[in-house]
């Protein structure tokens, strides 16, 4: 038991990023509100970023800045650098999705998927 908890503590970043991932996915999956969907998407992305950054983390390490006379362990800067790109991408996806939602809102006056289906008439499955 304690062993398991200890391992969980050591890998808490991974564990919680997975939990976040599931929460995000669930939000995306179950909400009809398009904005909430996008929020879910963001949570999901964030969980992956957390995961990625956690890979490069060294316990007790410092920011990898060249300083005179430093003898510390550095964290791996590569995942952070990569994730910066990932964040940029996520931001642009979010922004784009939001602008699409704005357009949808302009067409229908609502951001609820079910409502949109109803407004469009025809088949409300």
């Amino acid at each position: 038991m304690t062993d398991t908890l200890l391992r969980l503590h050591q890998n808490s970043y991974y564990f919680f990023s997975i939990v976040l991932f599931i929460i995000g996915f669930h939000t995306m999956l179950t909400h009809n509100n398009l904005i909430k969907k996008i929020i879910g998407m963001n949570i999901m992305d964030t969980s992956i970023f957390l995961f990625f950054v956690a890979i490069g983390y060294v316990r007790g390490g410092r920011a990898p800045i060249l300083e005179p006379g430093a003898g510390h362990a550095y964290i791996n800067p590569l995942p952070s650098a990569l994730i910066l790109t990932g964040i940029v991408v996520a931001v642009s996806v979010t922004a784009y999705a939001l602008s699409l939602v704005v357009k949808l809102y302009r067409h229908y006056g609502t951001i609820d998927a079910e409502e949109i289906m109803r407004l469009r008439g025809g088949e409300t499955l």
Binding site: A95, L98, S99, V102, K103, Y105, R106, G109
Partner: peptide, 20 residues
């Protein structure tokens, strides 16, 4: 690039709101 993109996005979202 980033700054202007974000500002542009903000403007277009806000303007979109105004139109509706």
């Amino acid at each position: 690039k980033v700054a202007s993109t974000m500002i542009t996005l903000f403007y277009s979202l806000i303007e979109g709101e105004g139109h509706s």
